[in-house]
Design a protein around this nucleic acid. Structure first.
Lengths: 316, 316
DNA sequence: TATCTTCATAGCGATCTGTTATATTGATTG
DNA sequence: CAATCAATATAACAGATCGCTATGAAGATA
C-alpha cells in the first residue's frame, strides 16, 4: 500500500489543527483540496481515519498514527525548504578554500571565524598549497577559492583573479633583536645573523635568495626551514634569527608583541595577494559571500596598515 | 521555496544508490521519471544538486543535505505504509474491550496476553461494566467489544450477539472447606456458612438471592461483598465462606488450588456469556481478530471443561 | 426552529505523473 | 583514437492529480 506523502502531510495538518479548514489554512491551501485528500486517503487505506459526525474532528487510532508520520514529513519538508533558502542567500553550505600557509594562518583563519559569526551554518574547509597546486585544485573542483600570491605573469586560463593586497615583504625578527637598536641597520649587518627559510614552494624563498645575494652574500646560509607560520614564529621568538615575510603577516602579529619588522626597505616582489575563482563553474552563494567578506577584510587591513604607519614607527 | 516531498524522496534514492537508474529501480519507477524530477528540482532550487559530468553521480553539498531530508521522508513513508498494511490485517491498532469483572479478570486478561503473542502491536484497552453500561458504551463508540453474560430476553438493537459459553453457576469455596468432605452436601448445610455477595450490578447477585431462598433461607445474610474477583478469592482463601460464581471462572482457578466448586448442582441461569459488537459501525480488523481469538479460546475452554469433568471429580 | 460554521461534492483548467522510444553523453577498451 | 557500452537526458503522450470556485449538506448554537 503506497501512500502519497503529500496526503500524509495534509492529514497531519488536519489532525494538528483539529479541523479541515484550519488544516488547509496551515498549509496555505483551500479547504476543498484537503477535504478531498482525506476522502481519497480513507478510500485507499480502506479504514476510517476520523470518527464520523463529530466536531472538532477526532482521528481514529489509525488516523492518529498515520498523522504522526505526516508530522515527520512536514518537519523534514520545512527543514528542506529552509535549507534551500539559506543556501541561496549564502547562509549555509560549504566553502572550500586553499591558500599559502602564511596567509592562511596569519590572516584567513581569523577572517573565517569572523565570517561565521554572521554565517554560522557555513562550513569552511581549508587546505594549503602554492599557486600551481591551487590552480590545479580549482580546475579539478577540489576547492572553490584560492587565496595566494600570484606573479604578474602567472597565467590563469579560466580563472578569475582579484587582487586584494599588493606584494610587500619585510625582514622579520623578534622584538628584542639587537638590530632594532640601530637607527638604520646596514644590509651587511643582516648577514651576521642566522636566517630562516620560508616554506619550500613559497615564492618567498626566491625573494629571500635574491635579497641575501643583493646584500652581498656569497652563499645562502639557511639555519632553519619551518614549513608553517607557527614554527617560524616560535623559532624567531627564541633566537636572534631573521627571515623574510609578507608585511601583512608580520603586521597581523603585532598584538602578540613577539615579532616585528626591521626598519629597512627591501624590494617589492612583482606579486600580489589575490583571490582566485573558477570563472565558468557555478559557485555556491556562500562562496561568493565569503570571497566578498575576505576582500572587505583586506581592504580594512590596508587602511589599518596605512594609519598604523602614519602614527607608529615599528620596532620602537 | 516550497519543495515537493516526492522529489526529495527521489533525490534521496538517487543519492543513496549513486545512480538515476538504480534510484528509479529502488522506487519502482522508470529512469526518465526520476531524471526529469532531478532536472526540475535543480531548476527550482536554482543550484546544482549533482556535480556534472561525473559518474558515479556525486551530489553537491546542497544535494546531499537535501537528500538527508529525503531519507527521513522515505523512512516515514515506508513506516506509514507498513502501518496501514499491518492495521488492515489486524496486526496493529487498538482494541477497546469492556466486560464484567469476574470474566475479564479470570479469563479475558489471559487471553489478551496470548493474543498479543501473535499480535504484539495491538494495544488492548480494558474496562469494566455490566450489560446496560456496556451496551451504552458500545453505542457511544467508547468500546469496540463487550464480553458479558446476557439474558435471553435482553434486547440489543443494533448489536450483534455471539454466545461463547452457556451460563452455568457453581457454589465456590476454598479447597479446605469442610463441606467438601461430605459426599453429597445438603442444601441446608450451606446456610451454616457465611456467604459472599458478587459485585453489585452483577447478575450473579440475583442468582445468589434466588439460590439461598431455594435453600430455605428466610433472609439473605451477606458477610462480605467484594467487587473484584481478586478480593473474593482472597477472602475465600481465608475463611470457610461460600459464594456463587460462574463455573468457568472457578475452573480457570483450578491450577492455583485455592478455590474449587462444591459438588452440588444449582440451577442454570437463563443466561450465556457473549461477545457483543455494534453491527453498523466499522470495526478495526484487529477487533475482529481479537473477537475470533476469544471465541476460539472459549471453544477450547469448553472442551477442556468437558474432558476435565469426565476424568476428575472436583473437590477430591 | 433559525442561523452560522464547517465539511463534502462537483466541475474545470493546469500541472504533474508515469510510461515508452530515442538521442546524447561519459566511460571503457581494442 | 575510434568503437562500443552503459547511463543519463529528452521527447511525446495519456491519465491522474492538484488547486481553484461555487454550492450543497450537516453539526453546532442560539
Amino acid at each position: 500500500m503506497k501512500i502519497d506523502e503529500r496526503h500524509l502531510i495534509q492529514l497531519a495538518a488536519v489532525v494538528k489543527t483539529g479541523g479541515v479548514t484550519e488544516g488547509a489554512a496551515l498549509l496555505g491551501l483551500a479547504q476543498p483540496a484537503v477535504s478531498r485528500t482525506l476522502s481519497m486517503l480513507e478510500k485507499r487505506v480502506g479504514e476510517p481515519l476520523f470518527i464520523k459526525g463529530r466536531r472538532p474532528l477526532q482521528p481514529t487510532p489509525l488516523g492518529l498514527s498515520l498523522a504522526e508520520h505526516g508530522f515527520v514529513m512536514l518537519a523534514a519538508s520545512r527543514k528542506a525548504s529552509d535549507l534551500v533558502e539559506s543556501f541561496r542567500v549564502g547562509k549555509s553550505g560549504v566553502v572550500r578554500i586553499g591558500g599559502t600557509p602564511f596567509f592562511m594562518d596569519a590572516l584567513i583563519a581569523r577572517l573565517c571565524a569572523e565570517f561565521q559569526a554572521s554565517h554560522p551554518d557555513v562550513r569552511i574547509d581549508q587546505s594549503y598549497g602554492y599557486f600551481p597546486d591551487l590552480r590545479a585544485a580549482l580546475k579539478a573542483d577540489q576547492i572553490d577559492l584560492a587565496i595566494c600570491p600570484i606573479d604578474i605573469l602567472d597565467e590563469g586560463s579560466g580563472l578569475e583573479f582579484q587582487q586584494i593586497l599588493p606584494g610587500r615583504n619585510v625582514v622579520a625578527c623578534r622584538v628584542t633583536h639587537p638590530l632594532l637598536l640601530k637607527r638604520r641597520p646596514q644590509p651587511s649587518h643582516l648577514l651576521d645573523y642566522p636566517w630562516i627559510a620560508p616554506p619550500p614552494g613559497s615564492p618567498l624563498l626566491a625573494d629571500l635568495r635574491a635579497l641575501l645575494l643583493s646584500f652581498g652574500a656569497t652563499e645562502i646560509k639557511i639555519r632553519y626551514s619551518g614549513s608553517s607560520l607557527m614554527s617560524v614564529i616560535n623559532y624567531l621568538k627564541s633566537a636572534d634569527a631573521l627571515t623574510i615575510m609578507p608585511h601583512s603577516v608580520v603586521f597581523a602579529q603585532r598584538k602578540e608583541k613577539t615579532i616585528t619588522a626591521l626598519p629597512i626597505t627591501i624590494p617589492h616582489p612583482e606579486r600580489a595577494l589575490a583571490i582566485l575563482k573558477r570563472v565558468d563553474a557555478p559557485r555556491a552563494p556562500a562562496v561568493d559571500q565569503f570571497a566578498d567578506f575576505v576582500r572587505l577584510g583586506f581592504q580594512e587591513l590596508r587602511h589599518l596598515i596605512k594609519r598604523h604607519e602614519e602614527s607608529v614607527i615599528w620596532g620602537l
